[in-house]
Amino acid sequence: MIALWDTTATEVVKALASERHSSGGLTSGLALNLVVIVDEKGEREAEAALTHAAQQHPCRLLIVVRRDSDQTAPRLDAEIVVGGRLGPCEAVVMRVYGPLVEHAESVVMPLLAPDVPVVTCWFVSPPVHTSADPLGAFADRRITYSARSADPIASLRGRAEDYSAGDTDISWTRITYWRSLIASAFDTASAPAASVTITAKQTDPSAVLMSGWLGGRLGVTPTIDDTDVVRDSEHLPAIKAVTITLENGHEIAITRDEGGNTLLRRTGFPDRTQTIKGRTLGELLAEELRHLDPDQPYEAALGQCTGHLELCRDAEAASA
């Protein structure tokens, strides 16, 4: 590990090369560049999440920790770790101060490994325009976390207005298990859907994206019944139940209790129970890093739930 205080991007590049050489790091073994923006409060959780993700995806990990933005003079403190506490990756933790908080790309870009994709992830409230943000403009994929915005639903609308191929959101990843369970339930459906009710917290972006996904797939307009949901993890969607009534009167209902036990009920079939536990931020991020191509289902769901139906058409055309 090398620590550099009040340093420059040039010095960080030299120190990374030196540490890689002494640790036997090989750039050719990297699958991607992962640029992550966090604040000081979330640094510890972010490092734990990124350690988990790096174990599955060899990467050059560039963590930008935003600190005192009110400081007058720009300052950069850097920590370089190759194959250390952050897992089997090449990691640079950059703590930026003052004007550098808004211009972190000046220290990130010289550190990007060549010839591999770039993924930028915001573990903080995302910028208004991710694809135009200096840290998002050069990325092949941009991962936001709308649930951490002051107004999550407004943040989703912003994601739709600013959508670029390669965008996705952790709030979407949180409902992977729900979507899988609902899709499997339709293997035995005897008629098209007539109505859909989602029992969830209306301000939860995962519930809104679920509404968009079901509305686009089933051709109905889901209703979100607002309710408080007790969760054992911030990274669980605030969804208690999804009930789908078919045109022949049959019903598909999925409910989840506070212990994570999920009950699937279908007219004419035995009930089925399974457990959906909360996943960690690292597990959610690792899932997103498994594919670096555009996420058309997310694009369509985002367009449907925000009224930007051109995204639905674009997603359908791209997947055709």
Results as ranks from 00 to 15, higher is better:
177 Y>H: 14
213 W>S: 01
229 V>C: 04
161 E>M: 13
212 G>M: 03
137 A>E: 11
147 A>W: 04
201 K>I: 01
197 T>I: 08
136 G>F: 00
197 T>L: 08
157 R>M: 11
133 D>S: 10
167 D>P: 02
201 K>T: 09
175 I>T: 12
161 E>K: 14
156 L>M: 03
172 W>N: 00
199 T>Q: 13
223 T>I: 06
170 I>V: 15
196 V>K: 00
160 A>F: 08
149 S>L: 08
218 L>F: 14
194 A>I: 05
169 D>M: 02
155 S>D: 14
228 D>S: 15
183 A>P: 03
185 A>E: 10
176 T>K: 15
219 G>D: 07
148 R>I: 07
124 V>C: 06
218 L>A: 07
195 S>V: 06
228 D>H: 15
136 G>P: 00
239 I>F: 03
226 D>S: 07
187 D>E: 15
142 R>H: 05
126 P>L: 07
133 D>R: 09
210 M>V: 00
181 L>Q: 14
215 G>F: 11
177 Y>K: 15
129 H>P: 00
157 R>T: 12
166 G>H: 00
151 D>I: 08
127 P>I: 11
127 P>C: 10
223 T>W: 08
132 A>N: 08
198 I>D: 01
197 T>R: 14
176 T>P: 01
166 G>M: 01
233 S>Y: 10
197 T>N: 08
171 S>D: 15
177 Y>R: 15
213 W>I: 00
240 K>Y: 10
185 A>K: 05
158 G>H: 07
162 D>I: 10
239 I>R: 07
140 D>K: 09
194 A>R: 14
193 A>N: 05
224 I>D: 03
213 W>T: 00
170 I>N: 02
150 A>T: 14
198 I>Y: 06
234 E>D: 15
220 V>T: 15
235 H>A: 10
125 S>T: 13
178 W>D: 01
143 I>L: 14
221 T>I: 14
160 A>Y: 08
141 R>Y: 02
200 A>W: 01
139 A>R: 06
238 A>V: 05
166 G>A: 05
156 L>I: 04
154 A>I: 12
192 P>D: 05
163 Y>S: 01
227 T>S: 07
237 P>S: 10
189 A>Y: 05
192 P>E: 06
128 V>S: 12
124 V>F: 00
190 S>G: 09
142 R>G: 01
198 I>L: 03
236 L>S: 15
211 S>Q: 14
220 V>G: 01
171 S>A: 15
221 T>G: 08
196 V>L: 04
146 S>R: 07
162 D>A: 13
218 L>C: 03
205 P>Q: 09
195 S>M: 11
232 D>V: 13
239 I>M: 11
215 G>A: 09
221 T>Y: 09
155 S>R: 13
208 V>S: 08
195 S>A: 15
209 L>I: 02
213 W>A: 01
164 S>N: 04
142 R>T: 02
127 P>F: 09
237 P>Q: 12
170 I>E: 04
217 R>A: 11
212 G>H: 05
125 S>L: 05
179 R>M: 08
209 L>R: 03
239 I>E: 05
184 S>I: 11
141 R>A: 02
233 S>I: 10
188 T>D: 15
144 T>G: 13
135 L>E: 02
186 F>N: 11
163 Y>Q: 02
163 Y>H: 13
